Computed example of a mutant assay.
Amino acid sequence: MHAERPDMAAWRGRVDPEADALRWHQCIQPLAASSPPGVALLGFACDEGVRRNHGRVGAAAGPQAIRRALASLAWHRRGPAYDAGDVACADGDLDAAQRQLGARVAELLAAGHRPIVLGGGHELAYGSWLGLAAHLHDARQPPRLGIVNFDAHFDLRDPAGGATSGTPFAQIAAQCDARGWPLRYACLGVSRASNTRALFRRAAELGVLVREDREIRESSLAALGAELDAFVAGCDAIQLSIDLDGLPAWEVPGVSAPAARGVALALLEPLLERLRDSGKLRLAELAELNPAHDIDQRSARVAARLVHLLSLDG
């Protein structure tokens, strides 16, 4: 890996006296070129796309806030976990930051790691996809790369005026079209109030699997799980994208665009576990944590719990 050694300052927490009572801060290691395969946390310290999208900036501080919240959570992994440092966008060059994120993701995948990208604005999804696409590229046969996005927004807005946090999946769709690759995109938790008719039409034209926030409830979880299973069965690999603004504002207030309704964490977890255990999950990402607008670290704690859930390996 070419990355600089990550700053491990966030990995601090309590130490318990009992045997077998380890926590994340005691087990996570800085990533090195010789590190055996494991989960690799890679920060995207960027909210340039949020700024361009006229959202509340502050998500660039999200990766460190997630690390701090994760540090004292109990360790239940069997395999190793690593901190792979951050990709930043200090100069406002979002395109370059997305390309750098893609290069880092591709390196992690080539080394056998499972990246979990910590955001940062949702513009990270395009950078992550570039890395996964480079890793899966096969000139003989186009990969069937599926994207499952838990989000209140489609993020399919026209990128003609430049990339933003609202354009990543439109950029991915354009790349798939240019490469002759199939686009398999599922967006779950969509808020009809927050997406225009034009965006719903665009999603229909692209064949997006859409489930609105009001459709995700306890009584529908089994049917939704079966739909996800069928979606995953048609893919070679899955990119999981979680925009924290898809959860209710009372659970996750620290985001660029808080959700008036959202999908509760208790409903998301069984669906995420299904994807984690599918055998096809290659990459996960959490977007839009904005510590500047968080309350009692609620949002950071939810994000940390999601990283913990996605990291479990039996």
Rank of each mutant, 00 (worst) to 15 (best):
S219C: 11
Q100H: 14
A230S: 14
A163M: 11
A264Y: 09
G189I: 03
G49P: 06
V252E: 00
G43L: 03
D213I: 00
R197P: 06
A84V: 07
L267Q: 12
A173H: 06
L70N: 02
L289R: 05
R214E: 12
E273F: 01
D229H: 10
G38K: 02
R157Q: 14
L240S: 04
L118T: 04
P115T: 10
L306Y: 07
A111L: 15
L156C: 12
P36T: 10
A233S: 14
A69N: 01
A111H: 15
W75F: 11
R114D: 02
G127V: 05
F150A: 02
A230K: 07
S241E: 14
A230Q: 14
L73P: 01
V87D: 02
A260D: 13
I116L: 15
P80S: 12
V117K: 02
V255L: 07
G85Y: 05
C176G: 04
A237N: 05
A33I: 07
Q239L: 14
G254F: 03
D47W: 11
Y82L: 06
L310A: 09
A173V: 07
V307H: 05
S299K: 00
R276L: 09
V210K: 03
G13D: 05
L41A: 06
A133S: 15
A88V: 13
W129Y: 15
Q100F: 07
V302C: 09
L188Q: 00
A230D: 14
A303H: 00
A21T: 05
